[in-house]
């Protein structure tokens, strides 16, 4: 099955990538952007979803600075 894991900076963590994108968008004429956060998308093809949460905790995300969510997409 296909699983999609979304990893992103925890709320309140400095996100310089997000800040850089946020300041770049108005320069291209896109106004009204209040906040941008840049995260990471991990696509897995796994036999079972049982251990996906453990994979996230141990490797895919760093709980000190990141939070994650995942879903089965097919």
């Amino acid at each position: 099955m296909k699983v999609r894991v979304l990893v992103r900076p925890k709320e309140g963590i400095l996100d310089p990538q997000g800040e850089a994108v946020k300041s770049a968008l108005p320069a291209l004429g896109f106004e009204g952007v209040n906040a941008v956060h840049v995260g990471r998308l991990v696509e897995l093809d796994v036999e079972s979803a049982d251990e996906v949460d453990a994979m996230c905790r141990r490797l895919l995300a760093n709980p000190t600075i990141e939070e994650y969510e995942w879903e089965v997409v097919g």
Binding site: I13, L14, P16, Q17, A20, N62, T64, I65
Partner: peptide, 17 residues
């Protein structure tokens, strides 16, 4: 060492990017 939890904290992207 931080990833291995032998040291606390984490190292983020430089603020200058």
């Amino acid at each position: 060492l931080t990833e291995a939890h032998l040291l606390p904290g984490a190292l983020l992207r430089n603020i200058s990017m």
